[in-house]
Computed example of a mutant assay.
Amino acid sequence: MNIKFFKRIELGFVYLLLIIVSIFVLLPVLWIVLASLQEGNSLFSSTLIPKTLTIKHYVALFKETDFLLWYWNTFKIAIANMIISVVITTLTAYVFSRYNFRGKKATLISVLVLQMFPSFLAMTAIFILLSKLNLLDTSLGLILVYSAGQIPYNSWLVKGYFDGIPKTLDEAARVDGAGHLTIFLKIIMPLARPIIVLVAITNFMGPWFDFIFPTLILRSQSKKTLAMGIFDWVQKGANDNFTMFAAGAILVAIPITILFMILQKHIVKGLAAGAVKG
């Protein structure tokens, strides 16, 4: 009886803690959503729920700024980086996980050492390299920087997951006549879906929120990303229009929120498996 009582107390404490954390997380989000829908330019309201709700700040955001252009530029860079990064990462991790070759250990150690250095240290070199290749002020140059920068960490992460998949499955498929590409696509990839989803969403989020590298590489008004565009907009005096800025913040958060809601199960599995396998 005492054990059951203490278990109920423990369970109640856990639920109480989760409720408190949820309140702290959701209240700022609710505040920004309501602020983006209220009249005027101030984020503050005399009532918890504004008396008058309007979507004019969202309409003004598209009419008075190039928000839609910034959104599209960022979206296509994020999607391209996600696809290229997943392809490069999975192929690299598969080679290191399933093949034995001369220099494998040294290469893995080199990759591990490379990921210890922040990418900001290479900014000057990246700028000069892209300048020599005539890729400055291009979306392709930015995509190449993002795709190359994710290889060290994500390759190690995915390799750890691939190492946890029994090699006997490969051998059984090989006996049945399957080639390396068939094994990779039909056996490894379906089993590695959680870690692939995790890599995909993290590589989508990187360009979506990044400000430093787009500022370094992009120059034209027509090439600006969301971070660059919103920063310039605020610099020009839009910091007085907080409700319109709140509307922009909500629109920026929508794709990431949708992705997390759809892929939540795979993301959790990928985080847990990638952390303990290998």
Score class of each variant (00 low, 15 high):
residue 7 K to G: 05
residue 184 F to N: 05
residue 109 I to W: 07
residue 148 A to E: 05
residue 134 N to T: 05
residue 49 I to W: 03
residue 112 L to P: 03
residue 210 D to W: 06
residue 174 R to W: 04
residue 267 I to D: 05
residue 117 F to P: 05
residue 38 Q to F: 03
residue 266 H to S: 07
residue 108 L to P: 00
residue 104 K to W: 04
residue 221 Q to V: 15
residue 98 R to A: 06
residue 271 L to S: 08
residue 223 K to I: 09
residue 179 G to N: 14
residue 67 F to D: 07
residue 27 L to F: 13
residue 203 N to P: 07
residue 159 K to V: 03
residue 61 L to A: 01
residue 221 Q to H: 15
residue 42 S to K: 12
residue 183 I to D: 06
residue 132 K to S: 12
residue 26 L to A: 09
residue 219 R to W: 02
residue 100 N to D: 12
residue 160 G to Q: 04
residue 139 S to T: 08
residue 37 L to Q: 02
residue 259 L to W: 01
residue 28 P to F: 02
residue 109 I to C: 04
residue 178 A to L: 08
residue 151 I to E: 00
residue 269 K to N: 12
residue 64 E to G: 01
residue 171 E to K: 10
residue 42 S to D: 14
residue 271 L to M: 15
residue 13 F to R: 01
residue 152 P to L: 02
residue 27 L to M: 10
residue 203 N to K: 09
residue 88 I to P: 02
residue 220 S to I: 08
residue 272 A to D: 06
residue 146 Y to E: 01
residue 45 S to A: 15
residue 179 G to C: 11
residue 134 N to K: 12
residue 100 N to K: 13
residue 33 V to L: 11
residue 158 V to G: 02
residue 95 V to F: 03
residue 53 L to D: 02
residue 228 M to F: 14
residue 129 L to Y: 04
residue 216 L to F: 09
residue 164 G to L: 01
residue 110 S to R: 00
